[in-house]
Design a protein around this nucleic acid. Structure first.
Lengths: 161, 161
DNA sequence: AATATTTTGCAACATTGTTGCATTGCATTA
DNA sequence: TAATGCAATGCAACAATGTTGCAAAATATT
């Protein structure tokens, strides 16, 4: 492994704003609560999600992280997070795989992401509209719903000015 | 690549010469109405959709058609059909691109596929539930909806026995 | 600190999708 | 219906995306 330089040295904790410290703690907390060993790539990738207001695609993370870690590591980390219920995938109209943080009531192997996703056609940002729940759909006889995904695309509030 | 056995007898349509002729005519009609030149690949691919009750992925068509035409031709044909409003893409939970025939009120550059899609976790078939419309979603201030996709996954009526 | 376990990087590969260009096939007009 | 113009196809080469096995490195455990 190449990199030895740490991004956020412990020493800086005193002089760093509280919010940064909180995020760092929160990251480690999430990983430990999910019985995951705390590694640099997992911390970094989880940080991307915590600091992003939208969803992230694999490519986003790959570009942001540069050559810091391998493509394969990103794939495996994302898969691990999905398995643990930390993030969830979002089906989008353009069929590009995107991931976003789960709410607290998701746990390993059991997602509860019954909220609406919004994808801006202009800036490409994907939002989780957590407070809008997916309406129940009455299916034809014999059909049994397991999961319902609702994705709205259009113009978001930032681009709508 | 000569697949002989036909799979689904579901609605067991008696293949009289007439119905075959009708399908053939319908295919040519659809192509001409959309100002597309009538080629073998377009006819064949369009036939796959007309004879399928579910949605098709690129891979499905590629496997079914064998080496009859090039992969690139399939990509371009599907794209052409989407552009003309003959088929539409379906966003699925597994983020695999699937296509299905549009209803009549779709035309070039303007899709009206406000119906629900159902994807069976067991057999993998994707259905267009044309008669179930997507409910209106009230978005936060500033958000403007352009398109709404609702995909339900679970067990379909065929597998639910 | 030593050991056991997990994760990572690398390499090699598979699948999926895109582009340019010469050739082929369709459609149009004479 | 033969000639011609234009669109579609096949091919090759490439780019992007995703998967797997294994040795090396990092993490967790004792």
């Amino acid at each position: 492994m190449k990199k030895t330089a740490v991004v956020l040295p412990m020493v800086s904790l005193r002089t760093t704003p509280n919010s940064v410290m909180e995020t760092q703690e929160r990251i480690v907390d999430i990983l430990k609560k999910n019985s995951l060993s705390v590694t640099d790539s997992r911390k970094k990738i989880l940080r991307y999600f915590l600091e992003s207001d939208g969803a992230l695609a694999h490519a986003d993370i790959e570009h942001q992280s540069g050559t810091e870690f391998d493509r394969v590591t990103i794939y495996r980390t994302l898969q691990t997070f999905v398995d643990k219920g930390i993030i969830h995938t979002i089906p989008t109209a353009d069929n590009a795989v995107r991931y976003a943080l789960c709410k607290d009531d998701c746990y390993a192997g059991h997602h509860h992401d019954d909220h609406v996703h919004f994808m801006c056609d202009q800036c490409g940002t994907t939002y989780c509209l957590d407070h809008i729940t997916v309406p129940g759909i009455s299916l034809p006889a014999g059909f049994k719903a397991q999961q319902t995904d609702l994705v709205v695309s259009g113009i978001c509030s930032k681009c709508n000015n």
